[in-house]
């Protein structure tokens, strides 16, 4: 019993002894010029000049942000690497130094720097824009004032989903409805998908898409087609990061004229011609008794 009491007394002291102050750095916020989803996808990788990374940082040491007196100066070295070694970079890394941030006025420590995504990817050897895994890129901003740093990450995702499979394609009036299933994952095709787009091309005019339509789920009605014309339809899958699969096997079909219920009713000699037989007044007429009843009750 006494042993338990002693243990209870010792436990809080043990907890105090284990408490340590964790050194915390400042953070780097990375904005992408295109979609700002913190992922560099295949399209952005292949067209890096169209995208920019913008870094904004707060330098800190042990959780305390760096503050400078007006007129003081500090240099910042910005590094992007595939391993997290801030503030001492491990190769390969892309690096630049921004000198003398004293002009940042008294609102320091926040500042920013833009650079072309292409030079980052080339330096890190990622410009082949392929890969079956998601690579984290570590960003480090290290100030010339000792110990003050900021860190952040951005993801490099080149994984692509497997090409979908068109199971059936149904003909409708001026439309084709394509039904798809997710393709089989392999070593090359690893990304999940539930987004697709379908491309319809006239069979007699190959290479010129008539329509391209995005969709989710397992089927899509492609509209605006011409009855009797043969179309080739191909479906592509998109990953959550926007990477596109290779195309499904193409399927051909022709829209057909269809009788919806109204057309069928009319074509078989139905006497109804539509329209409001007694006009909008009909609805009002139904409400008249209610109106008079309410008036009578109030009076």
């Amino acid at each position: 019993m006494r042993a338990y009491l002693a243990l209870l007394l010792v436990l809080p002291m043990t907890a105090l002894a284990q408490t340590t102050v964790t050194a915390t750095a400042g953070n780097v916020v990375i904005d992408e010029g295109n979609d700002d989803d913190n992922y560099i996808n295949q399209s952005e990788c292949k067209n890096p000049s169209s995208d920019k990374l913008s870094y904004n940082w707060i330098l800190a040491k042990d959780g305390t942000a760096l503050t400078l007196a007006t007129g003081a100066t500090v240099d910042v070295t910005l590094t992007v690497a595939t391993v997290n070694t801030c503030p001492s970079p491990a190769k390969p890394y892309w690096q630049t130094t921004i000198n003398d941030l004293s002009s940042a006025s008294g609102s320091f420590p926040t500042s920013g720097f833009d650079d072309s995504l292409g030079s980052v990817l080339t330096t890190l050897g990622l410009n082949s824009c392929s890969g079956a895994s998601i690579q984290t890129l570590y960003v480090c901003a290290a100030g010339s004032v000792s110990g003050y740093i900021a860190t952040g990450t951005i993801n490099f995702d080149q994984t692509v989903p497997p090409p979908p499979v068109i199971t059936t394609m149904d003909a409708g009036e001026s439309s084709l409805t394509v039904n798809v299933t997710v393709g089989v994952k392999t070593a090359s095709f690893v990304a999940d998908t539930d987004r697709y787009y379908a491309v319809a091309t006239r069979s007699d005019k190959t290479g010129v898409p008539v329509t391209t339509e995005d969709f989710t789920g397992s089927s899509k009605q492609i509209t605006g087609l011409t009855d009797g014309v043969v179309y080739d339809v191909q479906v592509f899958a998109k990953s959550a990061r926007g990477n596109v699969s290779s195309g499904s096997t193409s399927k051909s079909g022709s829209p057909v004229p269809v009788n919806d219920y109204w057309k069928l009713y009319r074509s078989e000699g139905g006497r109804e011609e539509g329209g409001c037989a007694s006009g909008p007044a009909g609805v009002i007429g139904l409400l008249v008794p209610v109106f008079f009843a309410l008036r009578r009750r109030r009076s």
Binding site: A171, P257, V258
Partner: peptide
């Protein structure tokens, strides 16, 4: 809907 001049059902 029914395909015109047929009793076959369409996908519409």
């Amino acid at each position: 809907g029914l395909i015109v001049n047929s009793t076959e059902k369409s996908s519409d």
